[in-house]
Amino acid sequence: MLESINLSSLPAFLLILVRVTSFFVTVPIFSYKNIPNHFKIGCSFFLAWIMYYTISIPEIVLDETFILLVFKEAIVGLFLGLIAYMILAALQVAGGFIDFQMGFAIANVIDPQTGAQSPLTGQYFYTIALLFLLVVNGHHLLIDGIFYSYQTVPLDAFIPFGNEAFSELITQTMSRMFLIAFQMAIPVVGCLFLVDVALGIIARTVPQLNVFVVGLPLKILVSFIVLLPFLGLYAGLVKNLFGITLQTMRSLLEIFGGA
């Protein structure tokens, strides 16, 4: 068994392992803090071992260039997972907009992925999206993304850091994330704005009525009434969101490949 191991190909395997492990650090689902680290390392190792026998392996030499290739592989894996998380973060941003109008902004929950506080509605949207992602085997598409990345960014190739398209892609991704979040939150936020206008009119016409006591439960009730029919359209929105995520990952790989 030991005689069949080609030690000259060990640097190439290490580069594959670095990219896959870096990808699992930031990509949704796999990067959750409640997933044990040894499980992530094990999945990364066996996935890298499978990919080692399925992709074309160039000759990699252990020299000063190898250190630069290790940093390049880490950057590719981290940015691929991060760009996927940035698009899906639109769900939490939309929930933050809704919670701020509902009055739920004072009651946040802990996001298991980042360990930071997250809005209630945003975490609810995000959990449904991840469950939908698992049901339709979307996590397989994410793994396909890191697998086919070697066709665009080979192991022995470097990233063209002088390409201005990279900064443009990050800017467009951020703006698209906030645009999607605003479009998802506008039905509820718009209705709550009308409720605020109505409460303001009532406060002027009936000064004896305490609108702060009546307004909070009324806004929560209106939010739930608007959210119920909205959940029926939520699956379609999440599907389009996944399509945008995969398209953005593909565009990032093309930029890293020098396109």
Rank of each mutant, 00 (worst) to 15 (best):
F242D: 05
E64F: 04
Y150S: 14
D63K: 08
T121I: 12
R204L: 12
C191K: 07
D156V: 05
A198D: 01
P229T: 15
S8R: 11
Q101C: 12
V188Q: 00
F182H: 05
V206K: 12
L15K: 09
N34W: 15
E3H: 09
A105G: 04
G236S: 08
F100D: 06
K239H: 04
T21D: 08
P119G: 12
E168T: 07
E73H: 08
L14G: 11
S56I: 06
F193A: 09
I35P: 06
S8D: 07
F24I: 15
N37F: 15
K40V: 13
L209W: 02
I60S: 02
L133N: 03
I255Y: 03
F46M: 09
H38R: 13
I16Y: 04
M51G: 09
L209H: 04
C191M: 14
P119D: 05
C191R: 05
F97T: 00
R250V: 05
L233W: 13
K33V: 03
F66T: 13
L14N: 03
M174C: 15
T127W: 15
R250H: 09
L68G: 07
L47F: 05
I29T: 05
L47H: 02
L7N: 01
A94Y: 01
D196M: 03
I98Y: 00
V213K: 10
V189M: 07
V189E: 01
G95C: 02
I29W: 01
Y52G: 05
I29C: 03
F39L: 12
I180N: 07
D156T: 04
Y148L: 14
Y32L: 12
I87C: 15
